[in-house]
Amino acid sequence: MKPAPFDYVVPATIEEALEHLDRGAGDATILAGGQTLMPLLALRMSTPGIIIDINRIPELQGLSRGEGATRMAPMTRQNVALASSDLATALPMLTRALSHVGHFQTRNRGTVGGSISLGEPAAELPATAVALGAEIEAHSLNGSRRIPAEEFYIGPYATVLEPDELVTAIHFPDWAKGSITVFHEVARRPGDFALVGLVGAITLDQGRIARVGLAWFGMGPTPIKSAQAEAALMGQDPASIDWKELAAMAVSETDPFEDHSASADYRRSVGRSIFARTLPGALNQGAKA
């Protein structure tokens, strides 16, 4: 369990990092918090020629509140984001999801951008980005672009990011004050990846659902936006919704797999249960608050 030889560079600026990425021509890997990359290197499942360590680029650290959105620099440590009262006020859904990411110790190193860029399909943060409608900002030497999170993921650990692109920010749009957090994760042990997970937000306006974002994790090759269920919920009075029927619809949008921890049938069945319970539960609590 020793990594294969690699070159190691520590750029001080984004520009410098992009130059290394460009020169690396697909043989370079970005080192953020290392919570996934280090084990993959040790197992020689990942054998990059160059590792670009972006831990010492000041612009990639921290989160800031802007007009209508929270800008999360990718190297923001998960525990730093979790401890942010600004974030807890603006996006309690994200704070809630962060509390389920790994363990206290791994969150000290693990970064928000690292998790979102990696695209582990059973991880909390990619699904949360999809559910909340985040945009992922990426730079290359040729310029920059913003990619909606729901278009970002194309398979397990696979994204639309080009080999010369670096994630430089994640923009989470604001959700109206009082929006309701939807979160439920079924994991074998605290800190494990989800067997089944559901995350999202709902905004009510005069008793009706005015905005909704929902995504599954652990339910397919990527985080899965529950687009049909979202559409069915829009404009509805929660009291009139047949949650079982809607849960079945939401699960029909997923494509779960079988692995060591659970069968695909298990994931579908548990997904239906948690959807049908979590959404009305969250709405009830939201109504009381």
Partner: peptide, 11 residues
């Protein structure tokens, strides 16, 4: 006795 096995039995 994994969750998958017990859950299946309970369906």
């Amino acid at each position: 006795m994994s969750p998958t096995k017990l859950h299946k039995l309970m369906q």
